[in-house]
Amino acid sequence: MRGSSSFLRDVPVLLVAVVWGSSFLAVQQVAEPGTVVAMLVLRFGLVLPVLGLAAWRGLRGMGRAEWLGGAVLGLVLGGVFLLETYGAVHTSATNAGLIISLTMVFTPLAESALARTPLPRAFLAAAGLAVIGVALLTGGGGLKTPSLGDLLVLGAAVVRTVHVLTMARLRSIRDTDSLALTWVQLATATVVFAVVAPFAGPLPWTVAASYGPAQWAWLLHLALLCTLFAFFVQMWAVRTTSPSRVSLLLGTEPLWAAVFGIALAGNHLGPLALLGGALVLVATEWGRRTAVAPARDAVGDEARGAARAAVAEEETEPTSASAAV
Rank of each mutant, 00 (worst) to 15 (best):
Q215G: 13
E253W: 06
A283Q: 08
G155H: 11
I100D: 04
T161R: 07
Y211I: 08
F44T: 03
M104Q: 14
L124T: 01
L68N: 01
T103F: 10
A93Y: 09
L73D: 03
L114D: 04
R296C: 03
R121Q: 06
G155V: 09
M167H: 10
A96S: 15
C226V: 00
Q28H: 09
Y211T: 02
A187F: 10
A38H: 05
L181T: 07
T241W: 00
L224V: 13
L129E: 05
R245L: 06
V164E: 10
T103S: 15
Q185A: 08
V30R: 01
R116N: 10
A189G: 13
F7I: 14
F24K: 07
P204Q: 12
A208N: 05
L129M: 14
L137A: 06
L53S: 03
R289Y: 04
E84I: 10
T241P: 00
A200H: 06
R308F: 14
T103D: 08
L181S: 04
V153W: 06
R57T: 08
P33S: 08
T166K: 00
T188S: 12
V30K: 02
V162L: 15
G69S: 12
T290G: 06
I100T: 13
T227A: 14
L14W: 02
L129C: 13
E84T: 08
R121I: 07
E84A: 14
L224D: 02
L250Q: 11
R289Q: 15
H221A: 11
A217R: 01
P118C: 04
V192N: 07
E253D: 07
N267I: 02
W56L: 13
A295I: 02
W183P: 00
H163P: 01
A298Y: 08
L75I: 15
E314Y: 12
L272H: 08
S178V: 11
L181K: 00
A323C: 00
L151V: 15
L249M: 09
L179Y: 11
G63L: 09
E315I: 13
V191K: 01
G261P: 08
V292G: 01
A96Q: 12
G78P: 03
A135K: 02
H90C: 03
A93C: 13
Q29D: 06
G97S: 12
L8Q: 13
L154I: 00
T284A: 07
E302W: 11
D297H: 07
A31S: 15
A321P: 00
V280I: 15
